[in-house]
Design a protein around this nucleic acid. Sequence first.
DNA 1: ATTTGCATTAACCAAATGGTTAGATCATAT
DNA 2: ATATGATCTAACCATTTGGTTAATGCAAAT
Lengths: 194, 194
Amino acid sequence: METSTEEKIIQAAEKVFVRDGYDGARMQSIADEAEINKAMLHYYFRSKEKLFQQILTGKIKAFLPTILGIIQAEMTILQKFEAVVDGYLKMLSENPRLPIFILFSTYRNPVILEQLPREVFHGLIGFIKKAIRNGELKKVDPEHLLVSMMGMCVFPYVAKPIASHMLGKSDDEYLLFLRNRKKEIMTLLKELVN
Amino acid sequence: METSTEEKIIQAAEKVFVRDGYDGARMQSIADEAEINKAMLHYYFRSKEKLFQQILTGKIKAFLPTILGIIQAEMTILQKFEAVVDGYLKMLSENPRLPIFILFSTYRNPVILEQLPREVFHGLIGFIKKAIRNGELKKVDPEHLLVSMMGMCVFPYVAKPIASHMLGKSDDEYLLFLRNRKKEIMTLLKELVN
DNA sequence: ATTTGCATTAACCAAATGGTTAGATCATAT
DNA sequence: ATATGATCTAACCATTTGGTTAATGCAAAT
């Protein structure tokens, strides 16, 4: 099964942009990685800027909505939390460099965000609010709790170089550390449940 | 009081590198910002790479040790947590773009980290361990707790563009959100204290 | 077989970029 | 006053980079 030129370019561009960032990426690197002529990049995608925006929006969209699908209404709030944390940590362990790429890129390119749906966040905040009304969950600010959950999941990935150094861990040890992450986040969240 | 050329360069380089990253920064931008001739950059700092490394190490060092100084041995663990969270949030509110710059830069330049002291982290982990032995704190993994605390502080800053969009907040509203952050992090941490 | 239109390539181009250099300027010591 | 060494400037340079173009290949339609 041969992949089309356009698909080869997209895959190569994802790899190079995520690894090097927009300014660090070279059109020639992408062409080499895709094993095609550099002119093909402009033939299919016009410019570096256009190609980058397509990659970035694609990556952000892939990052967001997976989680909401897993959550069932009849779950307890703790089960919902676990689904969210587990979903994000799994995605992160498969794409460890993705969050730093997305965060850095959106800092310089915030316009991209305008087309993104807010449903994922709104949905999760809705679940939290309901659980508080139920008395299932202690009274906390839902938005802050959501940001805290995401921070606890994402931070060890975006801060990997610093954190592994500060904790004195080798790459293998840090990987082990990340694998224990879910349990430790959940013990913290459990304290919020009545 | 006039600042020396070298000092002007450093201040300009900090501004431009933090804003644009290494690859996005231009030597001419730094020269313009410092209002000096571009050749002066090389006269004082040899190369873009050298200048950048000096800025980056300086920024990382400024980021780390402020906290440990505030903490007194006789504080309760909750007071210590509050000192850490407060210290970081204050630093972050004054330098909101700093963490994303440091994290992105160390991803591509991890060698820089080797000269950094581990005492800050070790010290904080020591405090947590002691508090657990005391029975002051519930049994949690100290390293994970520390990473969680840092994640909860730093994440809303590194993810500002995405988070403000997802939460449907204007810049002003997001600033307000950040100001409530301390209280909300502390309510979470309080649950861990016996 | 010829036309037609998309896909591909190699060569090329202009602009930008990090870096250099020869000479000017200026303060200080003699 | 003059020599000296550091500081500074304008012009310049080689290389890199995103992007273009003219020519070619090639498969399907006529």
